[in-house]
Design a protein around this nucleic acid. Sequence first.
DNA 1: CATCGAATGG
DNA 2: CCATTCGATG
Lengths: 351, 351
Amino acid sequence: MFELRLVQGSLLKKVLESIKDLVNDANFDCSSTGFSLQAMDSSHVALVALLLRSEGFEHYRCDRNLTMGMNLANMAKMLKCAGNDDIITIKADDGTDTVTFMFESPSQDKISDFEMKLMDIDSEHLGIPEAEYEAIIRMPSAEFARICRDLSSIGDTVVISVTKEGVRFSARGDIGAANIVCRQNATVDKPEDATIIEMQEPVTLTFALRYMNSFTKATPLAEQVTISMSSDLPVVVEYKVAGMGYIRYYLAPKIEEEEEEVAAHAQTKPRAETKLKVETKPKVEPELMEVAEDEKESKPPAESKPKEEPQLLECHKLDEESKPLVDGKPKVENKLGASTNGEIEIMDIEQ
Amino acid sequence: MFELRLVQGSLLKKVLESIKDLVNDANFDCSSTGFSLQAMDSSHVALVALLLRSEGFEHYRCDRNLTMGMNLANMAKMLKCAGNDDIITIKADDGTDTVTFMFESPSQDKISDFEMKLMDIDSEHLGIPEAEYEAIIRMPSAEFARICRDLSSIGDTVVISVTKEGVRFSARGDIGAANIVCRQNATVDKPEDATIIEMQEPVTLTFALRYMNSFTKATPLAEQVTISMSSDLPVVVEYKVAGMGYIRYYLAPKIEEEEEEVAAHAQTKPRAETKLKVETKPKVEPELMEVAEDEKESKPPAESKPKEEPQLLECHKLDEESKPLVDGKPKVENKLGASTNGEIEIMDIEQ
DNA sequence: CATCGAATGG
DNA sequence: CCATTCGATG
């Protein structure tokens, strides 16, 4: 039996709004650790990783690991029926192929339950590599969203360049070219307005704005966004889910051409789409999740540190032999970087 | 070299929103006097005249008169990328065919620049006639917009009748007829709510609501609108741009038929479109611009008074022999009425 | 269905 | 002044 209860139901609503445009169907992995999802977008260019840790819920019970395949659009539809102040309970009994969403109004005067059929989804189980990122930008999520939206009206592609002075977002297209430069401004006493750049090495990468704009659907979840970049690695765009975990989006960079070429190119023919290639992991290697320390201190993937003895959890499917938990709150190390299967590879398609 | 800097960038954004629906491509005329534009709408029925005087900018530099052909939709797109509080700088270097829009966020933490290609536009250089208007209505712009919108749901055409008692806007169509009468109410202590009618002669004119509704896109620019009318002359709908100048829209009246005929007509066949015919002035007669006194006192074209020796400025193209300026702030009289070229003529098409 | 613009609330 | 939401449009 699986049951979770979330008093701040609006969080779950926002989470679904943040991923439903990118992914049609996906498996939610339920374990004693938490409620999580990893999925590629339908065109296999981007990847979403969601983690909602069990500690973030007011009630959380997961007798056995379990995978629930859901149509995210339908799930979002149902969650839209919850008031923003409603308490949401998700329940799945063993041996049924349905999940139930329960919504309690704050006053307890209205109680709804919505039952949804589960789906059997070919689980491409994804290994997400950890990396040391050369540059990590932390900035107001609304500002990032605005920049991506603005640049979309100029071109399809954004070039993000990080230097010590700041970060530059550039686009060009038929009607002209644009550059937006954000200076570091950590000195603000309002931390939510800060723009902070941690840079080991200058990095310049190119991305499809279409996906960036999908990512920014998560803006309502967090006032700040973290953008982690390394040469030739997928960018990680992370939004924290307050007190519970995160949504991370991964997007492979477009293969860089020479600057001049890029410019000329943009005006003559569309650029080839670079795909984020993730090896599908056929239920062999257990899927891993990170349990980070308190939100305020947790760092982007690059900086997560091993804390305790790794606890492997098979989240992909029910596993009768799943390993014992550590006093009910298993500490699971992020083993992503160490994984030999399921690496993300950059593959240049069509060129 | 040409450069202007406007601290209240939202003004420029609004200006473009006010004209981009009416005009596709247009030449901006840059001179030491200011930044201006005259253009007919794409169907040659209406005319827009924009003037932003150099004194209205925080910085204004125009070494030589210069014409910049722009696609207004693209320009509007770029300006949309400026925040409402941003400072906007427009720059054009000599010998380039591009213009650069720079946006500085109030905190200076974000600086954007957008480069746009200029176009070579057949400049129909328009002479705009001045006239003594028989009736001038001054009223809240929002109220005027509301009236035009409301009447659009009844008919395609508005009849505006000015009498001493007030102004009547009428429309009729398949579903019925509507009359909206606004009384003069100058007594209000809130001047922005006042409706003032200056009338020498009762006037009744008929206009296509479609264009009126385009004009009201300028409503956000000014709390008051001025509507100047004379028999058989184009109406002038003017919105002041605070501290800088104006946008004026000109629209030729439809040829009046007898009231009954009009009613019957409207229900049987579409009315012929009356076109605003403007003689294209092939760079012969210098284009003139009005430099009005302080905004609060400046009057619509009909009432502008000669103040000093007229100063002619060739704004259409670089003119090495342009006349000297009066102590750097040229006072230019509106010579529109005196112009012998480029008159607006009413021409009844197709009937 | 999706995207864009307008109106309203924080 | 910015953000969200709703309505309208292609």
